[in-house]
Simulated assay, not measured.
Amino acid sequence: MNKGDHVLNALLLGIGIGVLLDPSLSVDTLSTIGMVTIPVVVGALFPDVDTAFGTHRQTLHNALVLSGFVLFPVFYGNLYYVWIGIATHFVLDLLGTQAGIAVLYPYDGMFDVPVGVNVDSNLATLVTVLVTGVELVAVAGLIRYGYGDLLRAPALWDVLVGVLP
């Protein structure tokens, strides 16, 4: 997908997750929205830094980068939610390019899915909104079935710290 669609997805996802985490629609909800949305947008834009160096959809579009941002808060106590933006960037790129992304970089091979639309398609933004809807349904499911704490900073990181040596 293009930069605009990545930002649209991140904004909608951040707002949606913020409301799902704090559905009171109060000032606290606005605070939660800001706490989630800003890092998600940063994460959604980060993988495309590889357009300035390295190889686009390889250097920063891989599991190693995502893992680093999932684990970063465990060790440093900040950058919560950035990983969500990176993960959704990968999903959109898998659906928005026929070339795919290098999930296992630096190993050779590009991965893609057999469905999706080209970045230049008139349907790209529609697909972005639909993907965002599916992601929000997944988040709502996590919350509904008792796993909402995994999305709350620093609860996810507390869980990971308990698992890591």
Rank of each mutant, 00 (worst) to 15 (best):
W83Q: 14
T128G: 02
F90C: 01
F46H: 00
F53H: 08
M35E: 13
V131L: 07
F72M: 12
G109N: 10
D22W: 12
G96Q: 06
V42N: 09
F90W: 11
G96D: 05
L136W: 03
V139P: 00
L150A: 12
A155W: 01
L25T: 10
G85W: 00
V91L: 13
G100F: 01
G146R: 04
Y107Q: 11
G133R: 10
G43W: 06
V161G: 13
M1K: 15
V41Q: 04
W83A: 11
T55H: 13
L95R: 01
R144Q: 02
G162A: 10
G68M: 09
H56S: 07
L79Y: 12
N118I: 03
N118Q: 15
I15L: 15
T37S: 14
P154N: 01
V27H: 12
A124M: 04
L79C: 14
L13W: 11
N118P: 06
F53K: 04
G18Y: 09
M110L: 13
V113A: 02
V129G: 08
V19G: 11
F75I: 08
D28S: 14
V40C: 10
L21I: 04
G100K: 04
A124V: 03
V27S: 14
N122S: 08
V131A: 11
A99I: 05
L60I: 03
L123G: 00
Y76D: 03
A140W: 04
S31C: 03
L45K: 01
T128S: 12
F75P: 02
V91I: 14
G77A: 09
P106N: 15
N122C: 00
L130P: 00
H61F: 10
L142T: 04
G34F: 09
L21E: 06
V40D: 14
L12I: 15
P165H: 03
Y81I: 06
S67D: 04
G43R: 01
Y81A: 06
G141P: 02
F111G: 03
G96E: 05
L104E: 03
G116N: 00
L156N: 12
V159A: 12
G148D: 01
Y147N: 14
P154S: 02
D158Y: 05
L160F: 04
P114F: 12
P47D: 12
D120V: 06
Y147C: 07
L123A: 15
I38N: 05
T88P: 03
H56C: 09
M1E: 14
D158N: 11
G133Y: 02
L150G: 12
L164R: 09
F75E: 02
Y105C: 04
M35N: 08
P23G: 11
V137Y: 08
L92V: 05
F111N: 06
L92N: 13
Y145W: 08
A99T: 08
L130V: 11
M35W: 13
K3Y: 06
I33R: 03
V70T: 07
M110A: 07
T51V: 15
A87C: 06
V134H: 00
A44Y: 02
T128D: 06
D93T: 10
